[in-house]
Design a protein around this nucleic acid. Sequence first.
DNA 1: AAGCTTTTTTTCGAGCTTCGAAAAAATAAT
DNA 2: ATTATTTTTTCGAAGCTCGAAAAAAAGCTT
Lengths: 413, 413
Amino acid sequence: MTVGIRHDDLRRRNRAMVLAAVRRSGEPSRTEITAITGLSHSTISAISSDLIAEGILREGRSEPTASKRGRPQVGLQLDPCAAAVLTVVLSLNLLTAAAVDYAGKVLAEETCRLDTLSLPREALIKECIEMVSRRLDDNSLAKHRVLRIAFAVQGTADSHARTMLWTPITPHGDIPFADILEAAFGIPVIVENDCNMMAVALRWRGTDRYRDDFIAVLLSHGIGMGIVLNGELFIGTQSSGGEFGHMIHHPNGALCRCGRHGCVEAYAGNYAIWRNARGFDENTEPAADIPDDEMQALAEKARAGAGPERQAYERAGTALGYSLGSLFAVIDPAPVTFVGIGATAFDLIEPALRRAIAETAGGQHSDSIVFDTEPKEQMLIREGCAMRALTFVDQEIFALGGPTASAPQLLEA
Amino acid sequence: MTVGIRHDDLRRRNRAMVLAAVRRSGEPSRTEITAITGLSHSTISAISSDLIAEGILREGRSEPTASKRGRPQVGLQLDPCAAAVLTVVLSLNLLTAAAVDYAGKVLAEETCRLDTLSLPREALIKECIEMVSRRLDDNSLAKHRVLRIAFAVQGTADSHARTMLWTPITPHGDIPFADILEAAFGIPVIVENDCNMMAVALRWRGTDRYRDDFIAVLLSHGIGMGIVLNGELFIGTQSSGGEFGHMIHHPNGALCRCGRHGCVEAYAGNYAIWRNARGFDENTEPAADIPDDEMQALAEKARAGAGPERQAYERAGTALGYSLGSLFAVIDPAPVTFVGIGATAFDLIEPALRRAIAETAGGQHSDSIVFDTEPKEQMLIREGCAMRALTFVDQEIFALGGPTASAPQLLEA
DNA sequence: AAGCTTTTTTTCGAGCTTCGAAAAAATAAT
DNA sequence: ATTATTTTTTCGAAGCTCGAAAAAAAGCTT
């Protein structure tokens, strides 16, 4: 099971440590890296000169910080040309892809609208392959080797992050996107849940609050969750974790899109809020998709005065509060960022949410639980994908060193 | 944050790896350890001869396995005299302590009845100190150095596992048992939740099913939980995790011992089953403690035929099922062992439990979710404590090597 | 019974890696 | 121009793991 540490693992790990330090800190000097990693000056010097020689790091040109005695520090930065990664995000009716350089800058981006619900399985796969193909051929990538593709999808992935098992955006399940794209392009692929990527992105934004333990909740047509514990993305035992939207809020309660009854989503998803605001029975078949502007109109009405709209948002808050509280009972309270269109109506949700959470074991200090909002999910998901792919390159390719790093083997197709 | 690996860490980690291999495998030969750890023969040979010279390991005397050509393998085992640890378990009206040798054998044990609910704070602390004192002076420990005390308590501990923050067994909270006992005896102490120790024990029993991901649920007066994920004990962000009993089953539902409404415990705890079986209102003040034989009588009646007793167990099953299902939605399904007096009535609980879990997202394959039972919690908790303490000695003391290992510094009192 | 085969364990030198100390480099202050 | 200060590199020492070879300890063969 747990394997011993060999001698050559040492260098690999410490190289990865240096790369992580540079990726996190922006442009640290060798001395700063020494402080971050706890390794000696000599070691950092040796490793960083290797990495520079291999074209992975480079010395910073900017020298704005003067005014101190002594030899000035030279900042190290990631060499943007060292590699590139591709992010692909598949969500309801929308497919977007972006090329990102090794330093994390977006080189090019493309969005395309699809009718995902009605598209046949093979057509959907074809759209994805063509999108990747176009991005790879684009001349923004002329000078870069693409070393990783991160594919985010609303839904669940298998434990090896290779197959999309299930998704609400299409009736087709069990699509092995990793195998498909690797076969087509010979570049290693990872398949991830979109909410997990939101959490990864928040972690890299580097706010103090979002360092070790926090939660990202997507409030959209459905409800999703990404959890970071101890600074690591928490993926249950099958990498499909965070199906928060289907925790049971009320046994035998409202009808959920998933066919079950009483899920959180059946109270707090767009369709649920809409259903309640319009006065429909809570077992009415969920609407397929509700445009953002219609949701915003609903929120405006709720803000204008008491009525079914306001009550609908309160019910959503109550469901979210009890379920978050139940979750907090098990994993302990943590800061939460609400993401997506629902986050724009958080003012309507928050009072009931706080009231409910205060009545749970996890809400013992409910006042001190912090909530943030982030209306746009797309950018956050792309950011998370990019960081996920880039850290893979850091740890699994560039940390190895030697010829593999400078000219990595592509997968045999 | 994450710190680099130094050169001397290497030996420390690999020594720990060897000790872990021996502790898990019983009596592996050097060759078997080579296979387990992935290290070379030379390394294992060097490390194990060091450990033998330091009196931590010894060569096995038993040589039953013959009948193979070639030089026979020599099994390595933990030297029982290398050290000892103490376990202390504090639960409702009961305090028990045991001395355990380095190989894991119980040397001596003592149980004492207390009225924990009414005992003043200082008297409770005094009882604990005296219990430890008696165990340490006992001549079963004459030849052993006691290197660690593990203190398990029903309730929550702080994130550093040093203070008991809250417990249902006494009104007194915030008792820094680790500081208190370390000051008195100069031996490092850890404070842990009892259900977490149950989970640790199951992990060490070594069934295949209880290796990487599983859950232990205590069904007793209260409901507790210990979770193992990826082979590691999962303690939320504050080490007080697993407050499963206070997940909300039904908003504004039955009155819980904790004062809130609708917790799982308010349906599935002993007092809740008793309350429902006796036909009391679900908001009736919870009974203080219900003797085991009375619960068993209740279960007998429920087995005899339909009636309020049977319904009470069904309600317990429903509450447990929905809540487990909700939890599974977030951490994915895992095998569960039910422990304690409630587990003896699992036949009464299971049907409703499976029905409820099948209606949740986590119960998608509810038939394949496996349940086991284990009626006696005390032994399991002690076992977990012992293993927790012993692995601490392995990793934090004996793995260091040098003079520290053979004559470790006790804490300065 | 002596020699041969097989398997486990130890020994030994080579090759890395990290570390500390000292040297070199680069700048501000005097 | 010289000195002080800080960063970075260089260099030798020490430690660890590894592979190959040797040693050890049995069963098997003739």
